[in-house]
Amino acid sequence: MKPADKKAYDKDYAQAKKTGKPFFPYAIYKDTIIAGLTVIATIILAITVRAEVGEPVNPATTDFVPRPEWYFYFAFELLKIFKNQDALTPVIMATFMVPNIMIILLVVWPFIDRGPERRIWKRPFALGMTVIVTGLLCYLTWMGANSPAGVASQGLPLSGLDEQATKGMDVYMANGCGSCHMVAGVGAPGPGPDLTNEGAKGWDNAKMIAWFKAPKAPMPSYASLPPEDLENLATFVNGLGTKYK
């Protein structure tokens, strides 16, 4: 805003204040009503939809969908959007670039949009941002709410499994890998990449086990699995799409 605009605003606001009304009780009564209704709504929610206690933690199995609270679904979905076989750049986009750009934009916004106009219909850019950001957040949250949960119970439609690979598949199922990865169309479509053709990469078991122990975020580490399970799991995953289809 130019100095003249600032002065004009100050003058206008002083005028508004002079012809205004006292905060108490004129504004505080509205505040009290809305805040009171909000607290009552919370109590009603607490009574009707009770907070539950889930399964106790067992770090040895991830037979579980790592699901955040609904207000982080959008971040979770972002991961799926940027997922890719070569996970580095896209994941950094989803976990680092996009969120940080959004946060910086949020904080410095008043220093970007400095014009004197306050009526929303005369600020097309701000109006566009409102619509796009709100729409995107709602859409991603909705996607997150409807994303398939773990599908471990269904089994995988694969053939050609030898004994070791069958054991490996059991490990895969028991540890909820399918809640982030898809194999032959079964499992969640992200945040992890589709593993149907993972074997085509030609990794050996040692390399794969090293990955299980220290994977790139957001995949959790499986270092606590017994070495035998890791070996079987690596055999299974390294044969996907080549030996086991």
Binding site: G54, E55, N58, T62, F64
Partner: peptide, 10 residues
């Protein structure tokens, strides 16, 4: 619980 634990790990 399991859900919270693994979500937070991620």
């Amino acid at each position: 619980d399991q859900k919270a634990y693994w979500a937070t790990v991620v």
